[in-house]
Design a protein around this nucleic acid. Structure first.
Lengths: 209, 209, 209, 209
DNA sequence: GACTAAACGAGACGGTACGTCGAGTCTTTGT
DNA sequence: ACAAAGACTCGACGTACCGTCTCGTTTAGTC
């Protein structure tokens, strides 16, 4: 939850600062990386004074998270191709494209590098991720409605199964992630879904089919 | 394993220091977390002087990575139950147990929190992971030999498919990981393997079937 | 006078710090001596933080020199008794008193102990000394005007001849310097001056006599 | 075997070390200056291990003083021209030459830069100086015997009067010291001596003339 | 259109940790 | 038995950045 000021007096004023600092933060992050990201540099890049930054964000980490959250929460194209498989493929490709770029790499790294301390931050990271998942859920829901997937299919589970191998490669192994990776993920996910392995919790203890 | 000292003189000498500092590092990490991990504190805890630490490790981060690498490269029980499914289940459970403990959490976090800068460090992290995977591969190989899995099954691929959902939950969503998570992962992996989706690269361009 | 404010803001602010640190520096110097003079101790004594000291003075040595320069450049009573001999005597006594005290000893020692490296510092030391000489010159000038000394008498030369034996004893031999030393110096100087040995450079190549 | 080795082991060995270290010390001092003179460098330059240096000299400062004392106590030409004035002139010129060279400057500086702490060191410095003076005293004594100077002339006083202005310039003002400086010093000293101002302490009281 | 209060610019400051350097000491090993 | 080799302790150095504080200077909204 970024700065939510109820319309007191200062309305149109700080918005420009906020935007400028956000941009500067992400830019610095991309240029120098997390370790070398100083508040002072960000401030200077934003054409603003250090104190001003501290007036709006308690912390360097909070600033980062806020900036990234905003940066990520933008345009996520939720695909709707009419078939779950192509939808998932579009989704997977979009993730791959987002994070296999240098920019994406930097962002990913930053989200983990400024992480452990402050549960607040881990929480922020989780939220960003959850948010993205939530936005994609309708694709699964539609598939269920279309009868492509079983009624008790767990949308979140489907999506997690889809993205897990991609993130694994992005975060742990250094393998290049490309369309093939994405496609494989789709196939595995579809196989699992069709096998009835991605159902809602209550159905985890499989009785019949 | 990380620091391979060619048998110079100081074999029996510095070894004690090395061990003590490693232990102190991990201990501090668990106690205070990455952010509050000071070289000075580590040194003190190891009953050693700060400069001595700097003589052996260039950097705070390098020290951490080295300590963790050693800490992780220990006892990994490679299961051999006679059936691939139970082997995978054992493997998955072992990961879950390792990292769902507070200790494991701290280590995981640390491995990512000291990350982005120094590709050296990302590399170290990758190596630790790869190492663990490599040790588990025989389980898959044996299954192939037993005829449980297709001849062209990609062992690494199988294992990645297995662990991906677990790490996803550990790193991105904050969901509790438990036996259920592990079991689900096993089932998905088995389904994918049986569907012929986890074959070696050359077979990725499907000809037959 | 609103327009006459070149010295921007930080005038009244840092001045207090500057003074406090100067005082603390001299105090520490006197208490512990040059070798044991720590920036940290000085800072603490001044009720200021180490970094603040480093913000204003590049170096421990620079700090010392600066502090001493200020300390020495204070009130130097230029005597004016109406006769050159008594003026010189007053001057000599003043030097003796200044430097034969423990305090003076410490300062003297410090001025040389923090010396050789950094020509900057040798320069500073020279300046302090020159400054003191320059302030005393009027005494000689007046004597010339009164006809006590020859018109081409070199004031600086006179003063150097006066102080040389005193500093010799202070710096090289460890003899106690007292009034007798001072008086002897005066007599020697007077004798030399009257013998026309302390004339300006142009007269250094003596033609007459 | 015991009789076959007259200059046993520890005698011939240590002497060489001593000499080498002394030389290395002075060399380092001249090259880098006092501030940058480390025991380790000296040891290395002498082809000896640090520990060995510490076995023979308690201290860095003690080492320096010892080395310099040896270095200075060498060849001091005590002039004997048959006339006090020319003797003094020779003496003064010799001092000027010794210390106006870069080498001499470095030595001088070093003698003061390692000074304040350890009264032991100030003492050593004093001794070096006293030694030089003592060696020169015969020149004055001979002059007294020849009847050039009054019987109660204080030889030490004469010499100090002679060297004082030279050292003043060397240590305090940065003026170049040359033959002129030396000659002036001689003239002043002679004037003072002839005026009966440089007599032994007991004669300081009587005002006869 | 002037007035007032919040936001900003500027910059020093206290504080924590960093990584470095050199002085001396201690231990191990070779001769 | 001695000394070369080198690791270790200790203390200080100077640096970087964090986050705080104070004080003057805009500037935006209200009257």
């Amino acid at each position: 939850m970024p700065t939510a000021e109820p319309p007191a007096r200062p309305i149109g004023r700080g918005a420009k600062v906020r935007t400028a600092v956000h941009a500067a933060t992400v830019a610095e992050l991309l240029d120098k990386g997390y370790a070398a990201l100083t508040v002072e540099n960000v401030a200077q890049r934003a054409g603003v004074h250090k104190t001003t930054v501290y007036r709006r964000w308690v912390d360097r980490d909070r600033l980062l998270v806020d900036a990234l959250a905003e940066h990520m929460s933008a345009d996520i194209p939720v695909p709707d191709t009419g078939a779950i498989e192509t939808d998932l493929r579009a989704l997977a490709h979009s993730i791959v494209q987002t994070f296999s770029s240098p920019t994406g790499q930097a962002i990913l790294a930053a989200m983990f590098t400024g992480a452990a301390h402050l549960p607040e931050i881990a929480e922020a990271r989780r939220q960003v991720f959850d948010d993205r998942l939530a936005r994609a859920e309708p694709a699964v829901t539609r598939a269920i409605d279309r009868g492509e997937l079983a009624r008790d299919t767990d949308a979140a589970e489907v999506l997690k199964t889809l993205v897990a191998p991609i993130y694994l490669r992005l975060l742990l192994t250094a393998e290049p992630v490309d369309e093939t990776t994405a496609d494989n993920a789709v196939q595995v996910t579809m196989a699992a879904a069709r096998a009835g392995l991605l159902r809602t919790a209550s159905a985890d203890v499989p009785a019949s089919e």
